[in-house]
């Protein structure tokens, strides 16, 4: 059968990081994780509604200081991530490397703050459902920060080695989307775990 050529792909862009399917893929991953967080937070409220006192009698709601520190550090790290991306778009490898490294550092600091905060929890995961859900939500987010940090550390290494160019910066773009999510999702968690018990 004869073929009529309607599209010639010879000159179409091969390296389009902002429309690359992987970008959509990471969005899918973010959607899944967001659904997980939503489920966890719903479970928190469901359990709260099943119990006469929440947190249970004799347990204090978690302290506000360290979580608030984290709430500052994570957006800050997103900002440096964004700044790094700007650099990368211009082909400024130095700005990229510095920005990404700064983000990793800030996130590691956030992890440290988070660890302090966990050490202060008044409830253990194994004596009441309140403690269980508190620990699990916290642990879930902690794990995600760890994986974002690990992934970004690899990006940082590649950046310092000069791998990324404006065409070949898909890794940076995708990693940044994920980073925004991990940083942003802390806000609802903060509101539910730390503010809600004080209001309800």
């Amino acid at each position: 059968m004869k073929a009529r050529v309607l599209v010639d792909a010879s000159d179409i862009d091969r390296f389009a990081p902002h429309t690359h399917p992987l970008w959509w893929g990471i969005l899918g991953a973010v959607a899944i994780e967001a659904a997980v967080v939503a489920t966890l937070l719903t479970s928190y409220f469901y359990l709260a509604a099943q119990n006469p006192a929440w947190p249970p009698e004799g347990v204090a709601p978690p302290d506000l200081f360290w979580p608030t520190v984290v709430l500052v550090l994570l957006p800050l790290s997103s900002f440096t991530m964004w700044w790094a991306g700007k650099g990368s778009d211009r082909g400024d490898q130095r700005q990229l490397s510095i920005g990404v490294t700064a983000s990793v550092t800030l996130a590691v600091l956030a992890l440290v703050a988070r660890s302090f905060q966990i050490a202060e929890f008044d409830a253990s995961w194994n004596d009441h459902a309140y403690g269980s859900i508190l620990w699990v939500i916290t642990g879930f987010h902690y794990t995600h920060v760890v994986s974002a940090v690990s992934g970004t550390a690899v990006v940082a290494v590649l950046a310092w080695r000069g791998y990324f160019t404006p065409e070949r910066q898909l890794g940076v773009v995708v990693d940044t989307v994920y980073w925004y999510f991990v940083a942003g999702v802390f806000l609802p968690i903060y509101l539910v775990l730390y503010i809600a018990p004080r209001l309800l």
Binding site: M1, K2, A3, R4, V5, L6, V7, D8, A9, S10, D11, I12
Partner: peptide, 10 residues
């Protein structure tokens, strides 16, 4: 149509 329509240049 007796012919098909295609992409070229990949």
């Amino acid at each position: 149509a007796g012919s098909r329509t295609v992409v070229a240049g990949l």
